[in-house]
Computed example of a mutant assay.
Amino acid sequence: MKILLIEDEPKLSKYICAGLTQNGHVCDHVTDGSAGLQTLMVNDYDLLLLDLMLPGMNGFDVLKNLQSFGKQVPVIILSALGDTDNVIKGLDLGAIDYLRKPFELDELLARVRTVQRRNTNQQTAKLRYEDLEMDLYSREVTRTNKAVNLSNREFALLEFLMNNAERVVTKTQILEKVWDMNFDPGSNVIEVHLYQLRKKIDKDSEHPLIHTVIGRGYTLKAQAR
């Protein structure tokens, strides 16, 4: 999932983003409510992790503005304000969960997985295209029933391609969904990852599925036999 963290404590932010990244997620991070709201308005996220005591616009105001703008994104509040009144206020303003600080990373990851299951259940737990299969729960990928071992980034990249099978996706679209906002769009990291992914998916196959569309982007598509 692509996740936005709005948290002003540097050490905690680094800890959370590292844990999310290690578990296959993309984590963007901003340190104040106003910047976070602006980021949410121009980017699509699968989940927002929101502190309440923020410089400038606080977390409650972020939630109020999200409601006003009709922006739909699941929100988990992360806050040291653990009294019942604040929990109720946060949930009434649209948050789906409230995690009191301090918390264990494993507990946060479990709650993130709950949101991921909800999102997945709205679609499907398994993606299939031709003889390529991806299980979003077990994170297993097979082609012609043979296991394909992918890194977290390769998995996210393939998931995006499979969700857009037979459509051309641009480098910008891949950047927005698979990489965090600190990524340098001038680098060739996307091309390198696609090259590695293509080697793994199309290895030993007479019918490659991942193709470069010159001047436009990339596509997952079975060529005419």
Rank of each mutant, 00 (worst) to 15 (best):
K2I: 07
K2L: 06
L5A: 02
I6R: 10
E7D: 15
D8E: 07
P10G: 05
L12Q: 13
Y15S: 02
I16A: 11
C17E: 03
G19S: 12
T21A: 02
V26A: 01
C27I: 15
T31C: 14
A35Y: 09
L37T: 12
M41K: 08
V42S: 14
V42L: 14
D44L: 03
Y45K: 10
D46T: 09
D46Q: 10
D46C: 09
L49P: 03
L50F: 11
M57R: 03
N58D: 13
N58L: 09
F60R: 10
F60P: 09
L63H: 10
K64C: 14
K64L: 12
L66N: 09
L66D: 12
Q67N: 08
S68R: 14
K71S: 09
Q72G: 03
A80G: 15
G82E: 11
D83M: 14
V87R: 14
I88V: 07
K89V: 01
G90H: 10
G90F: 15
A95D: 06
I96G: 08
Y98P: 13
Y98E: 13
L99G: 06
R100E: 12
K101P: 05
F103E: 02
F103L: 13
F103P: 00
V112F: 07
R113Q: 04
T114Q: 07
T114D: 03
T120Y: 10
Q123M: 05
Q123D: 01
A125E: 07
E130Q: 14
D131H: 04
D131V: 06
L132C: 08
L132F: 00
L136I: 10
Y137P: 02
Y137H: 06
S138N: 06
E140C: 07
V141Y: 01
R143F: 08
T144L: 12
N145R: 07
A147G: 11
V148C: 00
R153A: 00
F155C: 00
A156P: 00
A156N: 01
L157Q: 09
L158R: 03
L161E: 01
M162S: 11
N163C: 05
N163G: 05
A165H: 14
A165P: 09
A165L: 04
E166T: 13
E166H: 12
V168L: 04
V168F: 03
T170W: 12
T170G: 07
K171A: 02
T172D: 15
L175D: 10
E176I: 01
E176H: 08
V178R: 09
V178A: 01
W179F: 00
D184W: 07
P185K: 11
V189C: 02
I190Y: 02
I190E: 02
E191T: 12
H193W: 14
L194K: 06
Y195W: 02
Q196T: 08
K199D: 06
I201W: 06
I201A: 10
S205L: 01
H207Y: 05
L209G: 01
H211I: 08
H211R: 05
V213N: 11
K221D: 09
A224N: 05
R225F: 03
R225C: 10
R225P: 02
